[in-house]
Design a protein around this nucleic acid. Structure first.
Lengths: 112, 112
DNA sequence: GCCCCCTGTCAGGCAAGTCTGACAGGGGAG
DNA sequence: CTCCCCTGTCAGACTTGCCTGACAGGGGGC
């Protein structure tokens, strides 16, 4: 994904995924070190269900990947890892992205 | 603002302001041409009150500036203009921003 | 057996964002 | 006076997101 100019919808999803203090902190923690969910919850002092939700959003946006690892002793642990990316954000990028939003053509369609 | 690495909170606000198809379209339209509110509403085919709200958010985020111009004949028109900016978005920037979110220090505070 | 740690999902409550129609008012043109 | 265009703001409905406690289940160690 790095470097590719995303479509408008992708951009919106990406920004929405990042526009949250919790998710920013999660991403930062995960970028620094590969951890598993419960440990991450303890580290960031947040409820696991909440962390799960945020992780799902980050994963849906393609910003992190989860990997369920089953240790030789049978116990399972889910490791989370950050996915590198780069987006240059400025007026030009936005003007470009706004052109290909689903249903945005000048005379495209006015369905609501 | 261009080039300066924003604080965590500022980043979140900026991303939140941009994470909306409507606001993206507004910004794109305004970046291309300085227009006034009602004209913009017609151009984008959206209700004015709605446009007003989005403009307020964009203005609060410092992405656009409004200027109420009173023509010599007395009629007032509010012109909206885009504010140039640039933000490089990647894992490093996020890790950096996550460090200075209000209430995020490693052993800062655990008020809930 | 009991206790501990892990993963995952659920319903429910609360807060915030989104969108709409309607209103009040200023001013010009016919 | 009537019609039109403009700027603002409001309450209300609706949708979405956020967060919590509680649950079901797998597996290990004592």
């Amino acid at each position: 994904m790095s470097g590719t100019s995303p479509t408008g919808d992708e951009l919106v999803s990406l920004l929405a995924a990042l526009a949250s203090p919790h998710r920013l902190r999660i991403l930062a923690a995960v970028a620094r070190q590969r951890t598993y969910v419960s440990e991450l919850a303890r580290q960031l002092q947040m409820n696991r269900p909440l962390l799960y939700m945020h992780l799902q959003k980050l994963e849906a946006a393609g910003l992190v990947t989860g990997e369920l690892v089953t240790a030789p002793d049978g116990s399972s642990v889910k490791y989370v890892q950050a996915v590198p990316f780069t987006v240059a954000l400025d007026l030009d990028a936005i003007a470009l992205a706004a052109q290909n939003l689903t249903g945005s053509g000048p005379g495209a369609e006015q369905e609501k």
